[in-house]
Amino acid sequence: MNIKISNIAKLPTKYGDFKIQSFKENDKEHLVIFKEPLLNDVLLRIHSECLTGDALGSLKCDCQAQLHHALKLISKKNGMIIYLRQEGRGIGLFNKVNAYELQDRGFNTIEANHQLGFETDLRNYEIVEYILNYYKIKKINLITNNPSKIKSLEKFEVLHRIPSITPKNQYNLNYLEIKKESLGHFL
């Protein structure tokens, strides 16, 4: 892996004061948001970018709510969020918008990806191992509902899984049901 690492900067937020550092992997610039001290049993959220949810507040998903839930937890107990630049389960923003249009026509999130010629989930978590090793973290309390994220951390000791249960709404009910039924999420 050819990784460039930025300096560490302060990041004051409505949830408290954090620090940020970027890890540039080829054309992807991932972000680590953390609150020290980073103990060996760090509280961790691996969050994949969702511009429509995280920044625009889309109600079609639960991404923003999960991100904010993690920020609140970490502000109280210390830990980190690894924010991965893999929009739309790895298909990119352009294709995600096309998948949204297919969802508007009745396809679910997985079917829409398949209609566009993509696998269900193209995300890759290799950079997470690199980042955790960089910070010398071996034991994790993982904030997730996603069994794939737990599996991706098999080289680390996952002490606890902390659920990230967020409010449902009329726009994300089907999305959450698909995550539970087809992807095995703990919802």
Rank of each mutant, 00 (worst) to 15 (best):
Q86A: 07
K77T: 03
K72Q: 14
E111D: 09
I127Y: 15
Y83I: 10
L51Q: 12
A112S: 13
L132N: 10
I110M: 09
L93G: 08
I82C: 02
A112H: 02
R85V: 00
I91V: 05
N95T: 01
L71N: 00
N98P: 04
Q64L: 15
Y125D: 09
G88R: 00
T120D: 14
M80S: 02
S48I: 01
Q103R: 07
M80C: 06
I81V: 11
E119I: 09
L132Y: 03
I127H: 14
L56W: 13
D121Q: 04
I127P: 09
G106T: 10
G57M: 13
Y100I: 07
M80I: 06
Y135D: 02
I131E: 10
K77W: 13
N124G: 08
T52Q: 08
T109H: 05
E126L: 15
L93A: 09
K60M: 12
A70W: 11
Y130K: 12
C61E: 08
L116N: 08
Y125F: 15
R123Y: 03
I137P: 04
D121P: 02
V97I: 15
M80K: 09
S75K: 07
E129T: 15
G117T: 05
Y135A: 02
E101I: 14
D121R: 00
K96L: 01
S75M: 04
R89W: 14
I81R: 01
G106E: 02
G90R: 03
A70N: 02
A99C: 10
G88N: 00
D104R: 06
Y83F: 14
R85D: 01
D54W: 13
L51P: 05
R89D: 04
K76E: 10
S48L: 03
Q115M: 13
A112T: 04
N113Q: 04
L73C: 02
R89C: 01
R105P: 03
R105V: 05
A70Y: 08
H47I: 13
G90L: 06
N108W: 12
T109M: 15
G92H: 05
L122F: 01
N124V: 12
I81P: 03
K76Q: 12
H114W: 06
L102F: 12
Q64H: 13
Y130H: 14
L84Y: 02
L116A: 02
S48D: 01
E111A: 05
E119V: 08
L59A: 10
Q64T: 08
A65Q: 15
F94N: 09
N113Y: 08
H47R: 11
N95C: 01
L67E: 01
L56N: 10
L73P: 00
N124W: 06
N108E: 06
L102W: 05
L84G: 00
K96R: 03
F107C: 11
I81Q: 01
A99F: 10
L73M: 04
H68V: 05
A99Q: 09
I131H: 07
N98E: 15
T109W: 10
E111I: 05
N133M: 11
N78A: 11
E129D: 14
K72L: 09
R105E: 14
C50R: 11
C50E: 11
H69F: 15
I127S: 10
L67D: 00
F94P: 01
T120S: 08
G53D: 04
L56K: 07
